[in-house]
Design a protein around this nucleic acid. Structure first.
Length: 273
DNA sequence: GTGACCACCTGGCCGC
DNA sequence: TGCGGCCAGGTGGTCA
């Protein structure tokens, strides 16, 4: 599934493909993908607008237009393709943006989990979902003190807390496992119990893991590839998630369920709870 | 405020 | 071969 590194890769690819394109028309084939506004308003408001920039916030893609901002979350299997107008969308293509140049941007999402919001630019940070997002992994304000404050009342496992986008954005199930392995923290460790020393290591591990993943174009697991159909190379670098044996001690990797999510860890390397 | 649970959704896999 | 059941998982909503 697309997490921060995958979304970053998609963003960079799209920037090279569709920046400054002007939308001629939009087709929405599966209405629930457009969470706000209505399908008709979404189509009407986008018509004639130029893509001035493409940005990322957490796992959200931002298409910046002259007057509006389109927020797109790929969720589990969303992906973008650049196509020629003569091609026919499949049953999994739910939104098609046709540009004046003749190109088309298709949004494909097998499981229909992805969502799009179209807002006017003003006060965008006060609107859903941005009003509930936490810090970027490289934000200077992401310090042990910040995490300590955010986690102090959390009785949940640290694995679950890492997935909470209101604390730090961009970490999904795969990278949460990788970050905890790199930090040598057991995924069931109570979030509020982490010492300052551990939090320093945790923050560093988040940054190192995500930076490396971005550098390698993200991770390709089953359902994800970039908008050019390029597979990420980070799956070759996964140290724990989906592995059979630990890279460090060769112990058999343990798989458990934490907060309903498949969680991989090494009983030798991640002892501390 | 917090945490647990469920719904959304479809393809792949497994057992019968 | 075909069918049913389960699993995968990010997010939002509901409820205790």
């Amino acid at each position: 599934m697309p997490e921060l590194p995958e979304v970053e890769t998609v963003k960079e690819t799209l920037k090279s493909q569709i920046l400054n394109e002007v939308i001629d028309c939009v087709h929405v084939y599966y209405e629930p993908i457009v969470a706000y506004p209505t399908k008709q308003e979404f189509i009407e408001q986008l018509k004639g607008q130029k893509i001035k920039a493409i940005e990322r916030r957490g796992k959200w893609l931002l298409f910046i237009f002259s007057k509006h901002v389109l927020l797109s979350h790929l969720r589990m299997e969303g992906r973008y393709y650049l196509k020629e107008r003569k091609e026919v969308p499949t049953k999994h293509d739910h939104v098609v943006f046709s540009f004046a140049s003749g190109k088309e941007l298709w949004y494909r999402d097998t499981r229909k989990f992805g969502r799009m919001y179209l807002y006017e630019k003003e006060n965008i940070n006060e609107k859903k979902p941005f009003n509930a997002l936490g810090l970027e992994p490289w934000d200077k304000e992401l310090t042990p003190t910040y995490l300590k404050e955010k986690l102090k009342r959390k009785q949940i496992p640290i694995k679950t807390a890492l997935l909470d986008q209101s604390i730090v954005v961009g970490i999904g199930n795969i990278y949460a496992d990788e970050v905890l392995f790199l930090s040598r923290i057991h995924p069931l460790t109570k979030a509020s119990s982490l010492t300052e020393e551990k939090l320093v290591i945790l923050i560093k591990s988040i940054q190192v893991t995500l930076e490396k993943a971005i550098h390698l174009g993200g991770t390709t697991i089953k359902s994800y590839e970039s908008s050019e159909g390029v597979h990420g190379r980070f799956q070759n670098e996964l140290a724990i998630h989906g592995r059979e044996y630990c890279d460090v001690c060769q112990e058999r990797v343990t798989k458990i369920s934490v907060g309903g999510r498949g969680t991989y860890y090494c009983v030798n390397c991640q002892k501390e709870k």
